[in-house]
Simulated scan of single mutants.
Amino acid sequence: MHASTTTAVSEGAFASLFQELHDPAFLVDRVDGSFLAANQAAARLLGYSLDDLATLSPSDLHPHELPRLKAFLREVTTHGRWQDDNLTCRCRDGSFVPAEARATTLHVEGRDCILIQLRDLRGQKLAEVGQSVRKLSHDLRNAMTTAQLLADRLAENDDAQVRKSADVIARSLERAITMCQQTIDAGQIASEAPCRERFLLADVVDEVTATMVMPSGLGTQVVMDDADEDATVLDADFDQIYRILLNLVRNAAEAGAQTVRIYGAREDGRAILTITDDGPGLPDSIRENLNREKPDLSEGSSGLGLMICCELAARHGGAMSVMDSGPKGSRFRVTIPDAADAV
């Protein structure tokens, strides 16, 4: 914004109205396309101060789509008003905000101007993503229901191994169908409270093993060690503990581990699980994130499965941490307090 032009919109009734606009707004010189003014809402949206914005122009906020910006300003100038919901603004931190831009021409203090108002579309975009997720989950649920019916047929097979495999398949499908239903109901995977029951660690490890290890014995081997002769008891949600162990075993397998050892013990009203693998170790960035008090679940696919494990343990009032990780493998510690001792 040029010093000689800012006075024209810094005082008077128009300036007061301009600053009180609920939506972010800019006043642009119609001739040279420079900013004449911006309101506080615009500064908040983009992370700039008004002084910062005084040194910028529309092209600084849209460097990634200059042709579209020029076409937008040209249409406003030609028709007197225009609307475009395809513009995105670059914020001070480098992130981008999708926005609907509405503009109109006007005359302020002897100067031909363009008033541009923005509407933040991030909430709308998230709602659209949520709707798409619900639709996808609905179709996945239907597909898995069909697979579950086929698993039920396999359960009647004469071969005992086939019947055992069919039982594991049926339970896995049931978990998946439940998660799909939660997604349909809430638009996101619900942070459901644990449905606690008492069960042996050996039982859930058997199910993880049946899921991960091929009948031929090929692939990553899961070995159960137990301080109490296969009798470590958990007071927890069976399915959520299964998800924790399955994520750890699957991640180790995908990284190239040959063996995953699961050790269980009880101490002071809680179950303590130690999961050790002989894989290549975790990247430092993932390890640091997991050992935070509140792991960041927004970091995408990089370590997401492990971060979900942290969240599932936290739902029980427990925690998961990385005890050791290096070229010779990783060791995780999962603590699950009994219901009476959970925070």
Score class of each variant (00 low, 15 high):
Asp268Ile: 07
Gly80Ile: 00
Leu218Val: 10
His62Ser: 10
Glu128His: 03
Thr104Tyr: 10
Arg163Glu: 11
Thr5Gln: 15
Leu154Cys: 12
Asn142His: 14
Arg30Thr: 11
Val213Pro: 08
Met179Lys: 15
Ser16Gln: 13
Asp52Tyr: 04
Ala8Lys: 14
Ile116Thr: 00
Thr5Ile: 12
Met144Gln: 07
Pro67Tyr: 11
Ala257Leu: 08
His2Gly: 12
Asp225Lys: 10
Val9Met: 14
Asp51Gln: 08
Asp85Arg: 10
Gly219Arg: 07
Val9Leu: 14
Asn291Ala: 11
Val204Gln: 02
Glu100Asn: 03
Ile308His: 07
Thr183Trp: 03
Asn142Met: 14
Asp277Val: 02
Met144Tyr: 10
Asp32Trp: 11
Lys294Trp: 13
Lys135Cys: 10
Ala143Met: 10
Leu173Thr: 08
Asp52Gly: 04
Ser285Trp: 02
Ala257His: 06
Gly329Trp: 04
Val108Pro: 01
Asp230Gly: 00
Ala170Thr: 07
Ala160Val: 07
Gly47Gln: 01
Thr183Gln: 01
Ile241Arg: 00
Gly318Trp: 04
Gly12Lys: 06
Leu304Tyr: 12
Val334Ala: 06
Ala231His: 02
Ile169Ala: 15
Pro327Trp: 07
Ile244Asn: 05
Lys328Asn: 14
Arg315Glu: 01
Leu245Met: 07
Val168Pro: 06
Lys294Ala: 11
Arg331Gln: 14
Ser137Pro: 03
Ser59Leu: 00
Asp268Phe: 07
Cys113His: 05
Asp277Thr: 06
Ala103Thr: 09
Arg198Leu: 04
Phe35Asp: 06
Ser16Met: 12
Leu50Lys: 11
Thr335Tyr: 08
Ile275Val: 15
Val334Pro: 09
Ala202Thr: 03
Gly219Tyr: 00
Ala15Asp: 13
Ala210Ile: 08
Gln124Asp: 07
Pro58Cys: 07
Ala101Cys: 08
Val133Asn: 07
Lys328Glu: 15
Gly317Ser: 09
Ser34Ile: 05
Gly300Arg: 08
Cys180Met: 03
Ser132Gly: 12
Asp278Pro: 01
His22Leu: 09
Asp226Val: 04
Ala257Arg: 05
Cys91Asp: 07
Arg315Tyr: 02
Ser34His: 10
Ala236Phe: 10
Asp277Ser: 10
Glu207Arg: 13
Pro283Arg: 05
Lys70Asn: 14
Asp32Met: 11
Ser285Arg: 13
Glu299Leu: 15
